[in-house]
Amino acid sequence: MPETQHAKGQFQGTFAPISSHIYPVLFAIMAVVFILSNIGAAKGVQIGPLLTDGGFFLFPVAYIVGDIISEVYGFKASRRVIYTTFLIAAFASLTYWIIIILPPAEFYDGQEALIRTLGPVPLIVLASLVGFFVGQLSNAWIMVAMKRRSGERYLFGRIAASTVVGELLDTIAFSAIAATVIGIETFGQYVVFVLIGWVWKFTVEIVLAPVTMWTIRKIKVAEPHYGTVTGD
């Protein structure tokens, strides 16, 4: 598929329109995974000498979905998902806060557990929002910028390069805010937390890259109008 030229600083490439039935499904998956990972991240997890959080196994999925959206639908479509997911997560955090401050019924004996579980979530959400915003936008930007230069070739390279940068920025931003919330007290623990989080997320996405690439190819074939949208 020939590579198009760009104008006025906007990305150019071949993509599918967001009016398809597949785009909203990916949109919903991104939002759900991000919110669940925020709840899980409120728990500090230690596996042997390794420190991480309870959402460690979920968050890489958000980047895999982000890669699929960026590759198939372009930067504007990906940016729309990122902004909306950002707002949904903020609303979820507000909802948790309201649930906590509502006066408990006399028979309800779980208030303390509820506060302990959901109380840190707003701070975790703040950390996640900052990390998600910076990481996902850079991930999408790199993915689409490289596609503009290489066309449909080098998909694995686009996934790997965007993941290295996006996941690193995400992890640094998230950890800087969330570390103390989940019980990390020293700079050494913080560095370990960042490195483990980054290496884990990057490794998962690279290991699953063949599945991501297969999914992207299937979606491109399933999208009857893929390639009709040029420029981004």
Rank of each mutant, 00 (worst) to 15 (best):
I177G: 03
A178V: 03
A178R: 01
A178M: 05
A179G: 04
A179P: 00
T180F: 14
T180K: 15
I182S: 02
I182V: 06
I182C: 02
G183C: 06
I184S: 01
I184E: 00
I184C: 01
I184N: 00
E185A: 12
E185Y: 11
E185L: 13
F187L: 09
F187V: 10
F187W: 07
F187P: 05
F187Q: 13
F187S: 13
G188L: 07
G188H: 07
Q189D: 12
Y190H: 11
V191K: 12
V191W: 12
V191R: 10
V191L: 14
V192A: 14
V192N: 10
F193N: 00
F193P: 00
F193V: 02
F193H: 03
F193A: 02
F193S: 02
F193D: 00
V194I: 10
L195R: 10
L195Q: 09
L195D: 11
L195S: 09
I196A: 08
I196W: 14
I196H: 08
G197Y: 01
G197N: 03
G197W: 00
G197H: 01
W198E: 04
W198P: 01
V199F: 13
V199T: 14
V199I: 13
V199Q: 12
V199S: 13
W200P: 01
W200E: 07
K201W: 03
F202I: 12
F202C: 08
F202W: 13
T203P: 04
T203R: 12
V204I: 15
E205P: 03
E205N: 10
E205S: 12
I206C: 11
I206Y: 10
I206V: 10
V207N: 07
V207E: 15
V207T: 11
V207S: 14
L208T: 10
L208M: 08
L208Q: 06
L208E: 06
A209G: 07
A209L: 05
A209C: 12
A209I: 04
A209H: 05
P210H: 10
P210A: 09
P210K: 07
P210M: 07
P210F: 06
T212L: 06
T212M: 06
T212E: 09
M213E: 11
M213S: 09
M213G: 07
W214P: 04
W214F: 14
I216L: 04
I216K: 02
I216F: 02
I216S: 01
I216M: 03
R217G: 04
R217T: 10
K218L: 07
K218F: 05
K218G: 04
K218M: 09
I219E: 01
I219N: 00
I219L: 06
I219T: 00
I219W: 01
I219F: 00
K220E: 06
K220F: 02
K220V: 01
K220Q: 08
K220N: 04
V221F: 15
V221Q: 15
V221N: 15
A222C: 15
E223D: 15
E223M: 08
E223T: 08
P224G: 08
P224R: 06
P224N: 10
P224D: 11
H225D: 08
H225L: 14
H225K: 15
H225R: 15
H225C: 14
Y226V: 05
Y226L: 09
